[in-house]
Design a binder for these strands. Structure first.
Lengths: 205, 205
DNA sequence: GTCTATATAAGGATAGAC
DNA sequence: GTCTATCCTTATATAGAC
């Protein structure tokens, strides 16, 4: 948050209620598709009351995105350069898949934003995100050079992990539509598939 | 198209101009985010003239999606069950990546639609798309059973191919932001990465 | 802090001249 | 076929009572 922290307990609680409602609506309909009426209804508050806590629709959206970036990148930070390469990366894949399952709204919020050109978070991408990815890419390259990992382009590897895991949140309707009627446990089968797939592709010859 | 084909040459041409402009705008801003003003400006026509050719904003969007689904699925149909399994699938990956490079707007149009719950194309997903995927999944399973392909869940394999290739169109800003300043040829490096990656993961032991 | 009422603007769609 | 002018709904945001 860049703004001052809320003071009273009720303020804090209402801000949270609003952000949760907004996450639901923005992630489903995109920024433009979402309306304050929908968010107000989901939050159980009146529309003007929303704007008592946040100065505008934009401000709500920005607050959501800012609060999210850090959480979203945490798993990448946890890749341990001192660990066993293949296991570290497979663990990262499974961690990201778990997040797609547990926080699909957050994933879709990002997807909406980035597909539409990231008008509100381009600076976050070009700054902290790029820095972290470059750092981790260097560590992966180190592993490859040591022969402990199959030769891969580290940036594209990271992209592939993001793509394959977030797919299950972002394209959920499609996945369910195709896997129906056996799609109830598709995160389990995806977990098995991805773990085996990345293990095969990354284990050095 | 479900509607009657346009008669005169000028009608046909204007419909195409409008659809092209609409693809640009819808793919960038989503359905709700796009305005008829923007589409009209991009098409070089007046707003009422747009509505002379298409009965509503919705009608334009639907026409786009309908015309697209077939093109988008064509590469999947071309996987030859009589071919060499690993090579057929690697070729499919590269074909899909090429489409992401050559038709990013089409990819983003789909992404926008599906991320937001596919309100307008759910029937297409549950019908023809599922049918085709199930058919191809059976062929892949056959290959696995014959020991000509590493053991993989065919549905999740297809999802992973869609995810990793379309990622370069849908998340283009993110990819460019991270690969900057060396991102001009990133489709080439992605091509190398994905070909090697899928080959390693799919070749039987 | 929360509401009702309302100002104001944007956007989809139509009327009707040319 | 194409335009200008306009209708009308929706949606963001504010005023002001309580």
């Amino acid at each position: 948050m860049t703004t001052t922290a809320p003071q009273t307990r009720i303020q804090k609680r209402n801000r949270e209620v609003i952000l949760n409602a907004a996450l639901e609506v923005f992630s489903t309909h995109g920024f433009r598709g979402a309306t304050l009426d929908q968010i107000a209804a989901a939050a159980g508050l009146s529309k003007p009351n929303l704007l008592y806590y946040f100065s505008s629709k934009d401000a709500i959206h920005i607050a959501l995105l800012e609060g999210l970036m850090e959480t979203w990148l945490a798993p990448l930070k946890e890749i341990d350069p001192k660990g066993e390469p293949v296991e570290e990366l497979v663990a990262y894949v499974l961690h990201k898949l778990q997040m797609a399952r547990d926080f699909p709204r957050e994933s879709r919020l990002f997807a909406n934003e980035i597909v539409q050109g990231a008008p509100r978070i381009a600076p976050q991408i070009d700054g902290p995100l790029k820095a972290l990815v470059d750092e981790k890419a260097a560590e992966i390259t180190q592993w490859v050079d040591e022969g402990r990992l199959a030769p891969v382009d580290p940036h594209h590897l990271i992209f592939s992990i993001w793509a394959t895991t977030q797919h299950y949140a972002d394209f959920d309707v499609q996945v369910r539509g195709i896997l129906r009627p056996n799609g109830t446990e598709h995160f389990d089968t995806a977990s098995d598939f991805l773990a085996a797939f990345y293990r095969r592709a990354l284990t050095p010859a």
